[in-house]
Design a protein around this nucleic acid. Structure first.
Lengths: 352, 352
DNA sequence: CTGAAAGCGCTTACAG
DNA sequence: CTGAAAGCGCTTACAG
């Protein structure tokens, strides 16, 4: 370690000296506060520009003791455990930002209960909040949240799935269509003949559901590449093992020659479990780096898992609010996560 | 934004008051400086423990104006452009750390000239340096560097390839064996019959070369899984297009039925170029997210690229030196990069 | 072995 | 519209 000697920083004091004003006036100009004559304002701004002055964030933070509070609204951890990863990314970010006086308050809703979402929104609105990170699982309710935020000028970031047409700071999550497209390519490599089965497992499967966008991408690949495979599909609106087994029994008895199965979300382990029970051997592709899924990957019952950095989604979500609310950045772009391909051979090195 | 009111920070001033000493003495204890009686030292430490005092890093940085300087020693950018990514990660880290007074000095050596490595080491040793980030491309020369650092107590981190048995802070880079193993699994999916050809392209191919560890992993997969495919191999010790074409002409004339080709480094684009010229259609797997490689991925001449976050390697390298030298962390573990699988369908979303 | 005082580069009342 | 002064929580000479 050594001391920084020479470049004795060019700061407010120096600007004040050059402009023949006090540092308080310099501070006013720096923060666009009123009460400064146009003349001195210009003089100061010219000096700032000439010397390319950059404020010392450390000193500024120390002096101001400014703090922000962000709210997080995501599903409570379900049996699949998917939401634990974003949550841990959120915690990592808030740990990093704590030293700058930034607080993160977490709120959870029930994925099976749209009302719980609204209830939590009401809770959040009681507080003094500088930004919201939200998983807009229910389109309509999320739209309501967006409009409240619009009125109150509270910035909000969407993670994991998007609600286009809203005025969010940005979206952070997978490009659903493309991730389905990627799944199809892998399927194409691994299956040389036979039929393909697409399975959507979700209690909330309306026509706008984001799982369907993955299915569209999946189908698009085969069309684009002129592959004439037959693609079947089923929607399973219950998530328990026996409902899934029942649905699979039905389709696999009726349809012979299914060689590849694509499950559009993390429920792929339930399907793997079924195949294990029945001693079936098919190419199985699904989503998410979850304990159960990795187990079946390891066993060779799942060939590929597509993962989209859920931890990082949470981390980036908070950091993005910080950039917007504290660092005053604007025009922040949507952040699409990579489409990671996880296999039996590389999962041990995967960074969630 | 709001002000943090209540918890008026518990700091050195408060500790000093409770211990009946001056804050200067508290500071001495905090930094393990000598010149404090055992009695007062204990008194102060007890208070620190009791109140779980955490120093305010911001204030500390502002007051001390402490700085560190790290040196980076990596190959200069070659025609493949591989080293641009680690370099940009290094720049990103040094930009982040600049506000804390940390300086990064960059030194480059020629991958075809071991002496240039040693020359740069000599340059670095002229300076006051608090740590070195080095790509140990030449085992023997890197070992020399390690022993010099040992004498001078300068910490060093290896990136991209490792020199085991040295006393480095840690290694940051791919697990070479496992990445070859992964390549083999993909090859196994994509090639159903025929022979496989492994190609090492490098001017420096001694028996310890790190490319060979990838080849070992590749072969291990087929053995472990009892695949009886025939695996051929060639080493090409010149990197120009015509040398590569000549070597490929030779092997592909002699050996018929080669269906899959595995190139153990980023030179895969040269092989793709050859196939393009000859109108050949094979499964081709290689390494690294480089412009030329992506071009052939896009064209369908390369099926899979394995990538190992070169940008992140550089970023983590600097951050790790910072953690060790400035934040006094110890027992820092090796950091293996994920084994990312990049395809025509997901490369647009890849985060290098 | 210990302490008083100045200072890091900003921000914030307060006074005029 | 503007400035003097105190203060953020530490570190650093310097003096004893």
């Amino acid at each position: 370690m050594s001391k920084s000697l020479e470049n004795k920083e060019f700061g407010v004091k120096e600007i004040a000296r050059l402009a023949n004003v006090s540092i308080a006036t310099v501070d006013r100009v720096l923060h666009n506060r009123k009460g400064v004559s146009e003349a001195t304002k210009k003089r100061i701004n010219d000096i700032i520009k000439e010397f390319d002055y950059k404020p010392n964030i450390i000193a500024s933070r120390l002096a101001s003791k400014r703090t922000s509070t962000f709210a997080v609204l995501i599903p409570s951890s379900t049996e699949t455990g998917f939401w634990e990863a974003p949550l841990s990314g959120i915690d990592r970010a808030s740990k990093n930002l704590k030293q700058y006086g930034i607080t993160v308050r977490k709120f959870f809703f029930d994925l099976n209960d749209k009302n719980s979402f609204l209830k939590q929104v009401a809770e959040i609105m009681q507080l003094q909040i500088d930004g919201i990170l939200v998983a807009p699982s229910f389109i309509e309710e999320a739209t309501q949240l967006a409009s409240i935020c619009g009125e109150r000028k509270i910035p909000y970031v969407f993670i994991n799935s998007d609600v286009p047409g809203q005025n969010s700071v940005c979206y952070i999550g997978p490009h659903l269509f493309c991730s389905g497209y990627q799944a199809a390519q892998l399927m194409d490599f691994a299956v040389k003949s036979g039929k393909i089965l697409v399975i959507n497992v979700s209690k909330e499967l309306d026509q706008y559901h984001h799982l369907l966008r993955k299915e569209e991408g999946f189908r698009a690949y085969f069309e684009k590449n002129n592959r004439k495979l037959e693609i079947l599909k089923i929607d399973i609106k219950k998530t328990d093992a026996s409902s899934i087994a029942f649905a699979l029994d039905e389709v696999l008895t009726k349809e012979k020659g299914v060689e590849g199965v694509f499950v559009t979300n993390s429920r792929v382990s339930s399907v793997a479990h079924y195949f294990e029970q029945k001693g079936m051997d098919k190419v199985l592709i699904g989503y998410d780096f979850l304990k159960e899924n990795i187990k079946y990957l390891e066993l060779g019952l799942i060939q590929f898992l597509i993962c989209q950095k859920p931890e990082e989604q949470g981390y980036r979500g908070i950091m993005t609010l910080h950039r917007y609310a504290d660092l005053n950045e604007r025009n922040i772009e949507d952040q699409f996560m990579p489409i990671d391909i996880v296999t039996k051979e590389n999962y041990r090195f995967y960074h969630n």
